[in-house]
Design a protein around this nucleic acid. Sequence first.
DNA 1: GCTAGCTGATGCCCG
DNA 2: AACGGGCATCAGCTAGCG
Length: 518
Amino acid sequence: MALTLGREDRLPAARPSRFTAGDRAVAYPRRDLFGRHIVDTYFLTLAYDVTHRALAGHGLKEVARHFGLARPDRTYIPGAEIARIAREDPARLERYVRDDARETRALSDLLSPVYFAQAQWLPFGYQDVCLRGNAAKIDALMQRAYLAERRALPRPGSARPFAGGYTDIFLTGLARPVRHADIRSLYPSLMLRERIGPAADDGGVFLSLLDALRTRRLRAKDEMRRAADPAARLFWDAQQSTAKVLINSFYGYLGFEMARWNDFDAAERVTAAGRALLRALVEKIRALGAAPVEIDTDGIYYIPPADGDDAAFESAVRAGLPEGIEIEFDGRYEAMFSYKMKNYALLDEKGEIVLRGAALKSRGLEPFQREFLRDWLELRLRGRDEERRALRETYRRRIAKRTEPIAWLARTETLQDAPATYAARRTAGGRGRNAAYELAQAADREYRAGDRVSYYVAGDRKNVAVYAAARLVSDWNPERRDENVAYYLSKLDELADRLEAVETPPAAPSGQGELSLG
DNA sequence: GCTAGCTGATGCCCG
DNA sequence: AACGGGCATCAGCTAGCG
């Protein structure tokens, strides 16, 4: 039967395409259908995760649970059993499929309004608005303004490296209590305040657009607060959050090679102004008796002054800021374990734990390492030192007993390129061997860019070439376990040693905790 | 033939 | 087709050892 879903009963056209969101690139067959817009909630999920980073995974089931869209009585069927259930219990399979459809619908209702709002005023259709990046959108707005005034368009300048945000760590170990402050919309504020825009934009469109979007966002937030009707509130929320996403991309646009009005000097002036502002902020809070713990681009964690008068401290900090720059004191924590730059754990006042940083919560870590980190950091933050020191032995036994599911030890990696691209780069000599790609090449099925590969390391020696000893989790035989216990024990020990090595020497000068100077 | 120690590429993360 | 900065891991190499 022909899939005549287009207007005038037309058929879908397909062509190979790529979707990118952040560092992730996915190869997929793009469909275009006359008079229709096709939006994949999977891509909306990936784009959402770039900014929010709270999803455990990107599959429908886990995303639905994350957003609270899964009904308690939802039917679940593991992928491997679908064929069997289809034969033996088709009614159950139907319930499963209906639940999938229901959750997809609910996910769409949640994630798509922002894009629908964009389609109403950007020169792209709904489908394209969901697929294209923010630089392409800003470029389109710029071009529209230039063409309307019949002005010539510039050619993009060539790329060069430039310095980014200020990142530093002042204290490692356990700090308590801890506060967080953050400069509101740092880069957009600096661009507007210091009039930093592209040199090639003699029309001054860039900053006018930025200013207009900011005004538009503030209005939408007001409307949202005033709206009594939930549908209206959702509408205005989509309007304000789509403006926010674009506003935050203006700085990145300046430093983007393909952007028509790019300007690397201007991008560098923005980051330099940001660095200067944050350095001044560090000095200020020090002078007021607080101890900075770590800083990253536009926010700072610090131990507040011992007198306990947060309000006085905060208004003193505010008083020292330049015109047009606002600070938000947006976090209070019982304790913070400061590990390395961009890597820390927080215990908030409700008793919840938050982990940040590639070394502490990366999806690239094996589940046993993620679990160990979580347990270890929780005990560290809560001061349960005896249990913390015993933790390593518990995990060592679990590995040595060989009774955990293999997925607990396995690493899952995303293939950035197609295996053929990897092979070409290998023969060209530009790339070392990699376990995930080697397995993808040898596998029966065809792998594409964006696919995930789960593997574990087999053998019995601690030092092995991972690319040679790796086995696909799907080829694992529970009757003949061959995971490399020595290898995994050594990984666990190295991790535990790294964490325990973070010194907790005598009290800091202010006497507020066990800290070491970074 | 082995290992420690380094470098560069890669993956994933922070803001 | 937004940016730069940072950490961990691995492959691939070299120097040093027995």
